[in-house]
Write a protein that binds this DNA or RNA. Structure first.
Length: 592
RNA sequence: GGGCCCGUAGCUCAGGGGACAGAGCAGCCGCCUUCUAAGCGGUAGGUCGGGGGUUCGAAUCCCUCCGGGCCCGCCA
C-alpha cells in the first residue's frame, strides 16, 4: 500500500502548512520522472503561492516513508520515485485478505422466479452479486448471501397450473426447469389464457398455504444446477411462503402504522386502503401516496418487500431455518415452517436487482426511515444494474424470447474445447479446462462493464476468448503457471539485478489491493475486472519483451539471482491473478 | 407531465477536476529454431452528443438543448 503511505505523509506535511485535506496520489505518466505524483495547483489559492513553490515547500516538510528514493518537484506536481528494492519487496509480498471488521453485510441476489430456466438476463444479476459478495468478504466484511424464492408468485402459479392443465409428464430427457418453462410459455400463447384465471387463482392460494412446495422445489433444484455451474455461492434460501406463514407482513405493518405517514384515507382515490406518504423521504413525487394494503385487504408487493427488508435488518423476526437438502450446496440453509429461529440483523444490505426496481427500492428505504431507522435506510443499498439486451433486443420471459444460461454455458464449452483441441492437443484435461474457460468468458463479460450501463449480450463477444476477456486473464495466469512448473530449483533472490522491466511489472502488481478496496467501496466488480486486464497486459508485455529481436526477460535461463527475482515476480503475478479471478468467481486454469 | 440513467475511435467499452484522452474488436504492417502466438509490437482511427457556464485547469462539476433507455397501477 505504497500509495496510501504517500498520501498519509503528504497529509501530515500539509497539516503543518495549515491545510487539512487529503490529496490523491496518482501514477506518474511514463515520460515524467518518478513513479507517482500529486498535482498541487488546487492549493495555490489557499496558500497564496505558486504551485512550484508549494512543491518545494512540501518536499522540504515531508517526513518521507523509507521506501521513497527521491522527491521530484515537476512544475506544479510533486513526484516520487520509489526505491527499486522496496518496490520489488512489496510486489513479492503475498496478498492476503483484509482483516475482518465488525458488522454483517447481507447480499441478496439471483432471486429468480421458480418457474422456468435461467436466461442471460439473470446472468448479470448472479455474476454481479456473487462477485461483490466475494470481494466484500476479501475486503474484510462478514458477508451473508441470500437467495429469495418467490414461491407464492403468479409466475410460479402459472407454471404449476400449466403443467397440470396440459397434463404434461416429464420424460426425464429435458432439464426439468426447461420442461416447466415450456409449459409456462405455452400457457401464455394459449388463446384460452384469459379464461383460465380461476384455475391459476386456485394454485396461487394453494401456494400461499405452502401446499405445493415440493412442486416448486423440483423446479428450484433444476435451476440450482445452473447456479452451481456458474460457481455462484449462497448461504440462505428464504421462501416467500415462509414469510407469509411467519406473519412478517403483519408485523411490518404494525411497525409502519406507528408512523404518522402511514394511514387509511376515508375518502378519495385511496379510500379504504392503507397508504404510505413517502414525500418526506423521496422528494419530487407527483403523487406521494403508496398503497401498502389494498382496500380489498391484499398487500401490495412492495409491502412484502418492506417486510422482508425489515426482517433482514432485524426490525422483526419469526423465520426458522434448517439445512437444505440438495446435491449442490452442502452447507446451504433454507427457511422452513420449523427449525432454528434466525434473524440476520444486518446493518448493511445489498439488494442486487435491475434498475427498473429503483422506485420500489426507494420505497423500502423510505419505510425504514419512517419506521424510525434512518441509519438503516442509509445502509440499505440497491445495486441497480441495467438490463441485458439479447443481440440488441429486449428479452421476454413470457414470450420465451431469451437464451438460457444452460445453453450459453454449453455453447461456450463447445467453443472453448475446440480452441483447446486446436492449440493444445496434448492437454491433459480438456473438458475441465474448457469448463473453466467457458465460465471465465461468460462471467467476465457480465462484470467488466459498469453496472449502470446497459449491455448487449452477443454470442460473438460474450464467448470471445481474445482481447478484453476472462480467458485473456486466465491465459496470462496459465502462462505464469507454466513457467513456475518448469522452474524446479530456486536459489536466492538478488534484488540488485532488477532491470526496468521488473520494475514495471512490480509497479502493476502493487495496485491489486487498491483495486479490491475500490471495488468493495463502490460496490462494483468492474473496477477489479479492469485491473486484472491491466495486470495481465503488463505481464504479457513483460513476457514478450524483446531487445534487438531477442527475448529481454527470459525467466528460466536468466543468471542466478535474477532468475529467482523473476520467478518471484511471476509467482506473485500468478497468485494475484488467481486470487483476483476467484473474487469474480472465475477459476484459474493451470494449463490451457 | 414528473423522475432516474446513458451518450468517449467504425463497433464494444475504461477513464468521473490535473501532466499529451486509453483499451479491446474490426483494418493495415510485423513477431513463433525463445518459458503456451487464447499472446506481443507497430500503424491508422477522436469537435469526449451540441451550446453555454464555473475553474489556473473540464471527457470529468453546473445549466440548457438534442438523441437513446427505463420508471412513475388498489399488476408482480
Amino acid at each position: 500500500m505504497v500509495r496510501r503511505a504517500l498520501e498519509e505523509a503528504i497529509r501530515h506535511a500539509l497539516k503543518e502548512m495549515g491545510l487539512d485535506l487529503r490529496l490523491k496520489v496518482a501514477k506518474a505518466p511514463k515520460d515524467k520522472p518518478g513513479d507517482y505524483g500529486v498535482p498541487l495547483f488546487a492549493l495555490a489559492k489557499e496558500l497564496r503561492k505558486p504551485p512550484q513553490a508549494i512543491a518545494e515547500e512540501l518536499k522540504a516538510r515531508l517526513a518521507l516513508p523509507p521506501f521513497v528514493e527521491e522527491v521530484i518537484p515537476v512544475g506544479g506536481y510533486l513526484n516520487f520515485r520509489i526505491r527499486t528494492k522496496d518496490l520489488l519487496k512489496e510486489a513479492l509480498r503475498p496478498k492476503e485478505p483484509f482483516p475482518k471488521r465488525e458488522g454483517l453485510v447481507l447480499i441478496e441476489h439471483t432471486s429468480v422466479n421458480p418457474n422456468k430456466e435461467l436466461h442471460v438476463g439473470h446472468l448479470r444479476n448472479i455474476a454481479l452479486g456473487d462477485s461483490l459478495a466475494r470481494i466484500l468478504d476479501y475486503a474484510g466484511r462478514r458477508v451473508l448471501v441470500l437467495n429469495y424464492i418467490d414461491d407464492t408468485g403468479r409466475q410460479a402459479a402459472e407454471t404449476l397450473f400449466a403443467l397440470r392443465h396440459y397434463g404434461l409428464t416429464w420424460d426425464g430427457k429435458e432439464k426439468y426447469d426447461h420442461f416447466a418453462g415450456n409449459a409456462y410459455v405455452r400457457l401464455h400463447q394459449d388463446p384460452e389464457y384469459p379464461n383460465l384465471q380461476g384455475g391459476i387463482e386456485e394454485i396461487l392460494h394453494a401456494l400461499e398455504r405452502g401446499e405445493l412446495r415440493e412442486d416448486v422445489n423440483r423446479i428450484l433444484l433444476a435451476q440450482m444446477a445452473t447456479m452451481k455451474a456458474l460457481n455462484a455461492h449462497y448461504d440462505l434460501l428464504v421462501w416467500e411462503s415462509d414469510i407469509v406463514r411467519a406473519g412478517l407482513l403483519e408485523k411490518a405493518l404494525r411497525i409502519l402504522e406507528q408512523s404518522p405517514h402511514v394511514f387509511r384515507p376515508t375518502e378519495g382515490k385511496y379510500a379504504g386502503a392503507l397508504v404510505m406518504d413517502a414525500s418526506p423521504f423521496i422528494p419530487g413525487l407527483e403523487d406521494p401516496y403508496f398503497v401498502l394494503v389494498r382496500s380489498g385487504g391484499a398487500a401490495t408487493y412492495y409491502a412484502k418487500d418492506i417486510a422482508f427488508q425489515f426482517w433482514k435488518m432485524g426490525l422483526l423476526e419469526g423465520l426458522y431455518f434448517q439445512p437444505y437438502e440438495n446435491p449442490y450446496y452442502p452447507a446451504l440453509r433454507t427457511s422452513a415452517p420449523q427449525g432454528e429461529p434466525y434473524t440476520p440483523r444486518a446493518r448493511e444490505t445489498i439488494n442486487v436487482i435491475d434498475v427498473r426496481q429503483s422506485h420500489p427500492q426507494a420505497l423500502v428505504r423510505a419505510a425504514l426511515a419512517l419506521a424510525g431507522h434512518p441509519e438503516l435506510a442509509e445502509g440499505a443499498f440497491h445495486l441497480a444494474y441495467e438490463t441485458v439486451l439479447l443481440e440488441g433486443k429486449q428479452m421476454s420471459g413470457r414470450k420465451g424470447l431469451a437464451v438460457s444460461v444452460d445453453e450459453v454455458l454449453e455453447e461456450a464449452e463447445r467453443r472453448a474445447l475446440a480452441v483447446i483441441e486446436e492449440k493444445n492437443p496434448d492437454h491433459p484435461a480438456k473438458e475441465e479446462a474448457a469448463r473453466m474457460v467457458a465460465l471465465g468468458a461468460i462471467r467476465f463479460a457480465m462484470v467488466k462493464t459498469e453496472p449502470r450501463k446497459q449491455i448487449d449480450f452477443r454470442y460473438a463477444e460474450a464467448l470471445s476468448f481474445e482481447g478484453d476477456t476472462g480467458p485473456y486473464v486466465q491465459y496470462a495466469h496459465a502462462r505464469a503457471h507454466s513457467i513456475l512448473r518448469k522452474a524446479r530449483e530456486w536459489g536466492e533472490i538478488d534484488l540488485a539485478q532488477a532491470t526496468p522491466y521488473e520494475r514495471e511489472l512490480a509497479l502493476a502488481l502493487l495496485d491489486f489491493e487498491e483495486a479490491v478496496l475500490e471495488a468493495a467501496e463502490e460496490k462494483t466488480p468492474h473496477v477489479l475486472a479492469q485491473y486484472l486486464l491491466d495486470l495481465s497486459a503488463s505481464f504479457n508485455a513483460y513476457y514478450n519483451a524483446k531487445e534487438d529481436g531477442r527475448p529481454a526477460t527470459p525467466v528460466l535461463t536468466a543468471p542466478p539471482g535474477l532468475r529467482e527475482l523473476r520467478l518471484g515476480l511471476v509467482r506473485s503475478l500468478q497468485e494475484t491473478l488467481k486470487t483476483g479471478l476467484s473474487l469474480l468467481g472465475i477459476p484459474a486454469p493451470e494449463v490451457m
